[in-house]
Measured scan of single mutants.
Amino acid sequence: TKVFYNGTYVEFNNPEKAKKYAEKVAKKVGGTFTEKNGQFHVE
């Protein structure tokens, strides 16, 4: 499961961990995250 952010991504074996990371990054940058095709995108 990949989490895309700012033109790069971090890959996780565990979708649950990926979601938590996406939430954390989104919170940090004051943005939101969306799930597309089983991957997370932070905006």
Score class of each variant (00 low, 15 high):
12 F>S: 01
43 E>M: 13
20 K>E: 15
1 T>Q: 05
9 Y>P: 03
39 Q>M: 10
8 T>V: 11
12 F>V: 01
30 G>H: 09
9 Y>Q: 06
21 Y>W: 12
15 P>I: 13
28 K>T: 12
29 V>K: 05
31 G>I: 02
7 G>I: 00
41 H>W: 15
41 H>G: 02
17 K>W: 12
28 K>P: 00
38 G>M: 04
14 N>W: 04
41 H>K: 05
27 K>W: 06
5 Y>C: 15
25 V>D: 00
34 T>F: 15
1 T>W: 14
28 K>Y: 10
35 E>I: 07
10 V>G: 02
25 V>S: 03
30 G>I: 03
3 V>S: 01
13 N>G: 11
36 K>R: 12
31 G>R: 03
12 F>M: 03
17 K>I: 13
38 G>Q: 05
1 T>C: 14
19 K>M: 08
37 N>H: 08
37 N>C: 15
1 T>M: 06
11 E>S: 12
11 E>M: 09
29 V>N: 07
3 V>E: 02
11 E>A: 08
14 N>K: 07
22 A>S: 02
18 A>G: 04
38 G>A: 05
11 E>D: 07
3 V>I: 04
28 K>E: 14
31 G>C: 08
36 K>G: 06
26 A>K: 00
42 V>P: 00
40 F>N: 02
7 G>V: 00
13 N>F: 10
33 F>C: 13
37 N>V: 03
25 V>F: 11
34 T>S: 11
28 K>D: 12
12 F>W: 02
40 F>K: 01
2 K>F: 08
1 T>A: 09
37 N>T: 05
2 K>Q: 05
21 Y>N: 04
17 K>P: 06
17 K>F: 12
20 K>M: 11
34 T>I: 14
24 K>R: 10
6 N>I: 03
12 F>E: 01
4 F>V: 06
16 E>Q: 11
34 T>N: 08
36 K>T: 09
43 E>Q: 12
3 V>F: 00
18 A>N: 02
19 K>G: 05
4 F>L: 05
34 T>Q: 09
23 E>I: 08
32 T>M: 10
21 Y>F: 14
36 K>I: 15
42 V>W: 04
10 V>R: 10
13 N>V: 11
29 V>F: 10
38 G>C: 10
1 T>S: 10
14 N>G: 07
5 Y>F: 14
22 A>D: 02
39 Q>Y: 09
43 E>D: 10
16 E>F: 06
17 K>L: 15
17 K>G: 10
14 N>C: 13
29 V>G: 05
27 K>Y: 05
41 H>Y: 15
38 G>L: 04
8 T>M: 12
11 E>L: 08
35 E>W: 07
34 T>W: 12
14 N>T: 13
43 E>K: 10
27 K>M: 12
34 T>P: 02
4 F>M: 05
40 F>E: 02
13 N>I: 11
36 K>W: 09
16 E>I: 11
40 F>L: 08
43 E>G: 09
42 V>A: 01
9 Y>K: 03
4 F>K: 03
22 A>N: 00
5 Y>L: 08
10 V>T: 09
17 K>S: 14
2 K>Y: 08
7 G>S: 06
7 G>E: 06
26 A>S: 08
39 Q>I: 11
29 V>H: 09
15 P>C: 14
31 G>N: 03
23 E>N: 06
12 F>C: 13
20 K>N: 12
9 Y>C: 15
20 K>C: 15
21 Y>P: 03
3 V>M: 02
24 K>D: 13
15 P>G: 07
32 T>K: 12
14 N>Q: 07
7 G>R: 02
42 V>Y: 03
21 Y>S: 03
33 F>G: 02
42 V>T: 02
2 K>D: 02
28 K>G: 09
41 H>N: 08
23 E>V: 06
24 K>F: 13
22 A>L: 03
15 P>R: 15
9 Y>L: 07
7 G>M: 05
25 V>E: 06
23 E>H: 07
2 K>S: 04
32 T>D: 06
5 Y>A: 04
14 N>Y: 05
17 K>E: 15
6 N>Y: 09
8 T>C: 15
3 V>N: 02
22 A>H: 00
14 N>V: 07
13 N>A: 14
8 T>R: 11
10 V>W: 13
21 Y>C: 12
22 A>I: 02
39 Q>L: 06
10 V>Y: 10
15 P>T: 10
19 K>Y: 09
32 T>Y: 14
27 K>F: 06
17 K>T: 14
23 E>C: 14
40 F>C: 02
16 E>T: 11
8 T>L: 11
8 T>K: 12
36 K>A: 09
38 G>R: 03
19 K>W: 06
